[in-house]
Simulated assay, not measured.
Amino acid sequence: MEPPRRGGPAVAVMGMLVLVVVLCGAADGWTGEIHGRVVCDVCGDSSIGPEDHVLEGAEVAVLCITKSREVINYQAFTSSKGIYTVAETMPESDRWESCLARPISSYHEHCTRRGDAHSGIKFTYNLSSGHSHTVKPFLYKPASLPMYCS
């Protein structure tokens, strides 16, 4: 004799309904990403050349204002490739409207002074869900320039 089956078609249909409800709820979400690089401008010429190198562990702050006027502050550190990333998933009604990215500090022993004239970069975030905004690189320069930079 065969044991009684549990569930059956009614349970399968109910499981699919739960899955559909969960997936439909996720459709209202919005995901945004901001990334950029931090570079040591070895010669202090405000351009990135072959003598320059990325800074690992540099700290960057990103401040965003949402559509609902909430202010959200993010802190990021650069990877071994000098790249920082900030990402968020939230309801579409709360998505980022504008952001300000600014360098905070560099822990590299030879390159700790901010090299660019701007203390931050302000931008409007008007990208659809899943798209990222790239911020121009932040530059730091050494306390003393090498002789080959003259």
Rank of each mutant, 00 (worst) to 15 (best):
D116I: 08
T134Y: 09
R5I: 14
A12K: 15
Y74H: 12
E97Q: 09
A117M: 03
S47L: 12
R102M: 13
R6Q: 14
A117P: 03
Y74S: 01
A58F: 03
Y148A: 06
K136E: 12
T78H: 03
E109G: 06
C99T: 07
C99R: 10
R5P: 11
C43R: 09
S128A: 14
T89W: 04
V62G: 07
G32L: 03
T124A: 04
H53V: 05
I83K: 07
F77Q: 07
P137H: 06
V62Q: 08
F77S: 05
K136F: 08
P146Y: 05
M14I: 12
V39L: 03
T31E: 14
G82W: 00
G7I: 10
N73E: 11
A58S: 04
P4R: 09
R69F: 14
L145R: 09
H53F: 15
I65H: 04
L23H: 04
F77E: 07
S144T: 11
S79I: 01
V20P: 06
K136W: 08
G25P: 02
H53D: 04
D41N: 15
D116R: 09
I72Q: 14
S105V: 10
D28H: 02
A143N: 10
S106Y: 13
G15Q: 11
K141R: 14
N73M: 07
L17H: 06
G25K: 11
G32H: 05
V39K: 05
V42G: 04
R102T: 04
K81A: 03
P3G: 09
C64W: 14
K81N: 05
K81F: 00
D45P: 00
K141W: 02
H53I: 04
E59I: 06
V20N: 12
K122E: 11
M16F: 14
S128N: 15
L23T: 12
L100V: 10
V54L: 01
P9C: 13
R37V: 04
L19H: 07
V18R: 02
A101H: 03
V18T: 12
V135K: 04
G120I: 00
L100I: 11
D41R: 04
A87G: 07
G8S: 13
V22D: 10
L145Y: 13
L145K: 09
A61I: 02
T31M: 13
H131E: 14
P142I: 05
V20A: 15
V60Y: 01
R102N: 07
A10G: 03
G130N: 07
H133M: 15
H118E: 14
F77M: 05
R102F: 09
E97H: 02
P142W: 01
T31R: 15
P146K: 04
D94L: 13
V20M: 15
D52F: 00
C40I: 07
P50G: 06
C111E: 08
V38Y: 01
E97M: 07
R114E: 08
G49K: 08
G32Q: 03
H110L: 04
G130D: 08
T124Q: 06
P91D: 07
Y74V: 01
V39Q: 09
D116Q: 12
G36R: 00
G36D: 00
L145S: 03
Y107D: 14
I65N: 05
K67H: 12
M1S: 13
A87M: 06
L127P: 10
E92R: 15
S132T: 05
N126R: 11
L23C: 13
G32S: 09
G82H: 01
P103V: 01
C149G: 05
C43L: 08
R95S: 13
F77C: 00
